[in-house]
């Protein structure tokens, strides 16, 4: 952990005339797990879409590994270092194996060996030939996670990955994410409603409110001695709007 992998400066994202995101400065550090918490509509998911280059900011500087992506076209190779696991897993109408191999297939890379190992990691080693559409919600999300990990991303973006899951699946997925970060130094940006999940996983936590970053600190400090009264309220479990 140390250097910034993302540097965001004066980032504004507007839909029509409505500003949904307005960040003065945000640095995401190489190898950290950064949790972004905040109520619905705070701009968390929008931020992840910007980080995955799925959308471009309306204005501002978005620098990824030294490349100012707002000004230049992002090279495909750079774009392919980042991926997202969404809240609702969208799987192909194919078997589990094909789904996990999908990202590799897009890169023209061989999936031999990789898929089997990943399925074991997410506890689905016996489901390789099962139809992905027939799995339970938790199983589907684990397939989506394995699919993301298959491409060995430098940055893994997680958009409420466990929002609709049972405790067993939640702990399974959290453990995989933690291991991925520890063993491969994968940078993780986790968007969550759940402040306890942020506490369990993250090195640093940021609170987003109405498109603005209220506070960003190390996890322990964020929960024990929040600076902003709104953070304090949020941590106490009072809903903040």
């Amino acid at each position: 952990m140390g250097e910034s992998i993302f540097q965001l400066r004066a980032i504004v994202k507007q839909y029509d005339a409505r500003t949904v995101l307005h960040l003065d400065a945000l640095d995401i550090l190489q190898g950290e797990i950064l949790a972004l918490v905040g109520p619905s509509g705070a701009g968390k998911s929008t931020l992840l879409r910007l980080l995955n280059f799925l959308e471009a900011p309306t204005s501002g500087q978005l620098v990824y590994r030294g490349v100012n992506t707002a000004r230049e076209n992002i090279p495909l190779a750079l774009r392919r270092e980042i991926t997202t696991v969404f809240q609702r897993p969208v799987l192909l109408n194919a078997n589990v194996r094909a789904n996990v191999a999908f990202g590799l297939q897009l890169r023209g890379a061989s999936a031999n060996g990789v898929v089997g190992k990943l399925l074991t990691r997410v506890g689905l080693q016996n489901f390789a030939h099962a139809s992905a559409r027939k799995l339970s919600g938790g199983e589907m999300q684990r397939v989506a996670l394995a699919r993301a990990l298959a491409i060995e991303p430098r940055v893994l973006l997680l958009d409420e990955p466990t929002a609709n899951l049972d405790p067993y699946n939640i702990s399974l997925i959290e453990e995989i994410v933690r291991a991925q970060n520890r063993e491969r130094a994968t940078t993780v940006v986790l968007v969550t409603h759940n402040i306890f999940q942020a506490k369990r996983l993250a090195h640093r936590v940021g609170l987003l409110l109405n498109g603005q970053l209220v506070e960003l600190r190390d996890t322990a400090q964020f929960f024990q001695s929040p600076q902003d009264p709104r953070t304090a309220a949020f941590v106490r479990g009072e809903m903040v709007y």
Binding site: V90, R147, A148, I151, L157
Partner: peptide
């Protein structure tokens, strides 16, 4: 429609 976003997020051209 989410599938397109997911494919792009996984690096699809």
């Amino acid at each position: 429609p989410q599938l397109r976003l997911q494919a792009r997020a996984l690096g699809a051209t």
